[in-house]
Design a protein around this nucleic acid. Structure first.
Ligand SMILES: [Mn+2]
Ligand SMILES: [Mn+2]
Ligand SMILES: [Zn+2]
Ligand SMILES: [Zn+2]
Lengths: 149, 149
DNA sequence: CTTATTAATGAGAAAGATTATCATTTGCAA
DNA sequence: TTGCAAATGATAATCTTTCTCATTAATAAG
């Protein structure tokens, strides 16, 4: 019956600012998200949320990430593997892209203004305004080449 | 009982070249794929295949696109919407990217060597060899700007 | 051409992720 | 404090894709 105590996270404040009802569950999920610097899927978010407050169901995690995404608070990512993954929108760094290590699955973020600009230009020249860029590259760690094989 | 008659498609030949058993169903699906210049999902491929030869099941379409993809004959695409979409690999144009019209869902292909090179460079400078690029952009048709809006 | 071997197929069950349903609970404004 | 709309929990339903297994068909040998 006792409510867990933790400070309102930046995402919880955002939630209020958007006029969304700030329920206990949303406060917990917002806290967990603000506390994460990786790209968890819903199951993983659920695990982390339950540790903060066990009175939470996976259905609510699904509902909340959807709500947060619709309100521009979260970004959904697709790195293959069939489950959506999430991260806070605009953390402090701007838009970024993702390099997936083909062998380990590790996700490495990078920014590149030249790439930003090139994509904008390409799309504009086709007569469109860029709405969303969905880009991830898969790479394999370079093996340093040796002389005489 | 009567077998439909149609010529062996380029993909059917590829299938044989790779040492894959060329069944009637595979011949049909290869024909349908060679005949398509869009990005059908499995349901759509199934519809088209059934018109050529009704003795085919959707399970076989799923199996066949997977097989063809594993053998580099097909490329799987993800444009959102939860279903994989397919197109022939390397048709005649090289690698290309996709612009999705935000309003109509229409898929527009484009090539851009500068983009190819930039992505290669970015990944190399991070110490990786580029394996796969997963890129699609969503855009909205530009509204011609008017004076004193 | 016949036969044998082995892989492919069809039908439907199962799996895995996500969304919907509905009775109950709760945030929040009056 | 009360009332009510909205959110939640539990679980069913949905949707795409894969798996199972009995039956069928492709290829190679004879
Ligand atoms: Mn995970
Ligand atoms: Mn379709
Ligand atoms: Zn990221
Ligand atoms: Zn294409």
């Amino acid at each position: 019956m006792k409510e867990p105590t933790f400070p309102d996270s930046p995402l919880a404040d955002l939630c209020r600012e958007r006029g969304l009802k700030l329920t206990g569950q949303r406060r917990t999920i917002a806290f967990v998200l603000s506390d994460s610097d990786d790209h968890p899927d819903v199951e993983e978010l659920y695990r982390r949320a339950v540790e903060v407050d066990p009175r939470i169901s996976i259905a609510t995690v699904y509902r909340t990430v959807r709500l947060f995404e619709e309100n521009g608070i979260l970004q959904r990512r697709d790195f293959g593997g069939g489950r959506a993954r999430y991260e806070v929108a605009d953390g402090d760094h701007g838009d970024h892209y993702h390099l997936i290590d083909a062998d380990s699955g590790k996700v490495i973020e990078f920014e590149n203004p030249e790439l930003d600009a090139l994509l904008e230009n390409i799309v504009r020249e086709m007569g469109y305004d860029l709405v969303t860029t969905r880009l991830s590259v898969v790479g394999r760690r370079k093996t340093k080449p040796r002389g005489n094989g």
